[in-house]
Design a protein around this nucleic acid. Structure first.
Lengths: 215, 215
DNA sequence: TAGATTGTTAATCGATTAACAATC
DNA sequence: TAGATTGTTAATCGATTAACAATC
């Protein structure tokens, strides 16, 4: 892989910051300014851009609008991305109802659940029986799916998704997914993120002995 | 900081894997096995453990139960951690109702919202007016908070939290939080995670020219 | 004992940062 | 022009991995 995940994450952050700057009336930006905005170094910004052949003006910095177009195209934001969600528990439902995706060109076109009682074809985002997933995904040529099921179901759901032609998964279940070579799985693990915050809060309180002391 | 975020994240993963192994009836584990389970190298496992003065038996590997006790204590899982949530939109509400935290010793004791219509003192997790946050947090000595508000409100909410004595924040709003030195903020940005999956799915489809071509 | 595994040191790898020539 | 900023190369930094002596 030529580009690291972190690098792509930064591109997204640049994009978000640039929209903010644009809405404040700015037309161009220096690497230094953008770096401050996002919390990285100016070197980092220029390095990232050069990796993607994005260039600015030796003196005038970067044209924000042109930059946004390039970043959006790199990130696949130039066309609507259709996504499905499996699992209509608390998290799954929240994602289906979440307004933040639309403005990013991401549309959740359907949810799926194994429990018929949770299905509902007539909602804004219809929730369909899991049995219909394969046809739905194939018909709409959907490539991205979200797993928001209990962990015991996650691998099975992932297998079904891959079989249907899905290539990328965002997985909320706290379990490692086995996936084919030509696919990608990203993880969001809420317990783990909270646990991490807890650790560092506790560590801040302790005097300063985090180092090795050998039990 | 002596220990990196990634290292702590791995400790959490080790812990989860060890619970799984324990439930399968194993009593001890080699670094190699645990590494496979979590998807890292055996060196990594031993290195991480040695950073925290955790030692095993030169031949017999590590006692799972003792290991779990140590990891739990390092991660602060030996006592109940009380957490509040601000913002009772889709995500905030899902978090309040989420069952996964309890088994990890994390308890969401209250939610807060600026909209009186969304408040409800009698639910399983009461949702209180934001004005009551400060007293509530102080009285219960709460150190951890979750922000699930719109991005425009996030910084203000964070300031209020810090003022009340909160030291660690998990922030779901897609905005960078300015925070005091003695505090920590972790970010969960759902749009960004999805965007990342989208990028790599598109990149997998493209032949193989991710490299620089200079515009 | 011989074999296997830990704990730790040294080597490697990759990502970030600094520096600076090119140039507007 | 002089000053400022880019684009890129080289240096630094930190994290991961390999190797191996100690030892059970």
């Amino acid at each position: 892989m030529v580009t690291s995940k972190n690098c792509i994450i930064r591109l997204s952050r640049y994009k978000n910051a640039l929209y903010r700057l644009l809405s404040l009336g700015f037309l161009k930006v220096f690497s230094e300014t953008l770096a401050d905005e996002v919390g990285v170094t100016a070197s980092q910004v220029r390095k990232d851009f050069s990796l993607f052949g994005i260039s600015g003006n030796k003196k005038g910095g970067y044209q924000i609008e042109a930059l946004l177009n390039k970043l959006s195209s790199i990130l696949g934001k130039d066309k609507l991305q259709k996504v499905i969600v499996v699992g209509s528990g608390h998290i799954g439902t929240a994602l289906m109802k979440y307004k933040g995706f639309e403005k990013e060109g991401i549309k959740i076109t359907a949810g799926f659940d194994i429990d018929p009682a949770k299905c509902n074809k007539s909602g804004t985002v219809p929730v369909l029986p899991i049995g219909e997933l394969k046809d739905f995904v194939k018909n709409d040529a959907i490539k991205i799916g979200i797993i928001a099921t209990p962990d015991i179901a996650a691998q099975q759901v992932a297998d079904l998704m891959f079989e249907a032609g899905i290539k990328g998964i965002l997985n909320f279940a706290p379990i490692r997914i086995k996936s084919p070579q030509d696919s990608i799985v990203n993880y969001v693990n809420l317990e783990l993120e909270l646990e991490n915050v807890i650790y560092f809060v506790n560590a801040l309180n302790k005097p300063l002995s985090l180092s090795k002391d050998s039990a």
